[in-house]
Design a protein around this nucleic acid. Sequence first.
DNA 1: CTGTTAGCGCGTTCAC
DNA 2: GTGAACGCGCTAACAG
Lengths: 348, 348
Amino acid sequence: MKKVGFTRSENTRRDAKLTMTEVAKHVGVSAMTVSRAFRQDASVSEETRKRIMDAVDELGYVLDQSAGSLSSRRTGFIAALVPSINNSNFSDTARGITDALENTGLQLLLGYTDYSIEKEEQLIESMLRRRPEGVILTGGSHTPRARRMLEKAGIPVVETWELPENPINYVVGFSNSEAMSLLVRELAGKGYRKFGYIGGTTARDTRGSQRRSGFAKTVEELDLGPPRMISFGVPPISMQQGGQAIVSMLERWPDTEVVLCVSDLSAFGALMECHRRGMRVPEDIAIAGFGDYEISSTCHPRITTINADCYGIGRQAAARLLDALQNGGEAGDEITLTSYKVVLREST
Amino acid sequence: MKKVGFTRSENTRRDAKLTMTEVAKHVGVSAMTVSRAFRQDASVSEETRKRIMDAVDELGYVLDQSAGSLSSRRTGFIAALVPSINNSNFSDTARGITDALENTGLQLLLGYTDYSIEKEEQLIESMLRRRPEGVILTGGSHTPRARRMLEKAGIPVVETWELPENPINYVVGFSNSEAMSLLVRELAGKGYRKFGYIGGTTARDTRGSQRRSGFAKTVEELDLGPPRMISFGVPPISMQQGGQAIVSMLERWPDTEVVLCVSDLSAFGALMECHRRGMRVPEDIAIAGFGDYEISSTCHPRITTINADCYGIGRQAAARLLDALQNGGEAGDEITLTSYKVVLREST
DNA sequence: CTGTTAGCGCGTTCAC
DNA sequence: GTGAACGCGCTAACAG
């Protein structure tokens, strides 16, 4: 078998892990000067900086940040935990964070909790071992131990996507319950009366539960009769599960006029299942989702939904953290309400 | 404004950044013994280990891995770069990597290149500053400087999703060109003759270019007349752009029988646009995609596509890296071909 | 603008 | 099974 580059073969020399001191020797300055040359603000004459950087290029030296952060006590890490990255709402939030962190010298440590607070606890611990300078979480439900670790860490924490009763530090989010309530009211205003709801089976997805309760509460308030609710599948429920759920809905309550789904993904699945059964949307049944995924504005008919500014949540959460890091959090509010809006489309 | 937890307010005491030595003092052992207690293999009596761990819990001590890795010269990081995380094919790969890394003590440092090799170069540098123990890349096109840095880093590198001509170390991927070629042949076998192709405008997406050339080559080989190719939008092209592209296709070549798209997303957009125009799929025109996204198996009609085992690519790439880290890469092949298959569905 | 000294919080190594 | 000395590669703090 051919030897490959990273093994300690002769030609690669393993490059003896170049240090700053060696670069310094090569240039004829002290290591400290090399260290300074790597930062913009530090005072190094343009000429020496250039000579140092030339040597860096020539030797192929790469700064060792793990050593630097031990000394400077700044790791340059921000930890963020999202339920899932295979969900475009959360990957939009992750992208918002990444974009907001660009050119700040801060790097994102991303983790997936799989909608489990136990997994979240475990991830928080392994993240904190890396000494992040701040943490961004999704939601406000955490294990007691997770919460204790975060509070003890002495770094700013931003909870997103919800409005926790008892926040750790900062919050950047919105009321999922009120957003769903708004959607019910809009659709009731269009004349719909018999409302159905499709969501997952457990409370694992706290945002899903909040949407469900917002739905139930509002249907009751508007005196629209008992809410018709189908629970199907472990959250997050998939497109396919949305399709299966609407079948149950139609069997149980065939005269349902409009179905609200916990997310656009299940709404899309429900829509396609209706097509497959020859039902027209919205003529025979109307369907709405939540999240304004790309699919909802592209499919036919386009799906009515709630746009929750996922990307903006990420950007604002990161901005909140940056502000806290720079100004000690004295300025700005602890709770940032993010915007959401009903997007009425062809499916209702 | 209310003080929040992370500020240096009295009640939080900023917790004076507990060190191992302080935990050790509290228990009445040396720091070294505490250090050992954190690792499984190390020899510490069960009784002392328990006493130490109790103190750790009580004090809320969290191991500082950045200090540890400086000393042990093992950071426990694996760096992975994907074009975009808002694309479920790549987020599936990222999940495969994460899953394969579970319980290895290795943590993923994830970056998004936005399909740009310049951004990739920049990310590679900032990743290497964290001294990852291995790197996973998407594709085989890199800037010369990026390649030099990787080669000098002395760590295993896995390129994925393609079969680069001149690999750095390891490859876990498949031929996008041949996969597309296979799809053309299958559809030709079903009787289709007038083939169209929809993809992005530039070569930025190298996999897209490879798929396109596989398409063109095979259409020619099968003597199916000049290939009808529409380039629309900067890669990665969206659902909506797929819809716009098929409009161009139909204007230019109204008698096109089947349209292959660079990804399922554009295929779905094209499909929905056809519905919007009252065209039947596949009766009036057949459509196929690439990637087997969830949407393709859920929409109506279901979309014919290529399943490329995105998740498996991630798992296998990580496994390859782990093997290289443990066995110095002596065992196992340098090139791992991943499987792909045509999934024939209702849209063709 | 540049250099020197000291030490960040751990793990390696060796001694007992 | 446990401890002491030392150093990982860098930067803070101070000196000049």
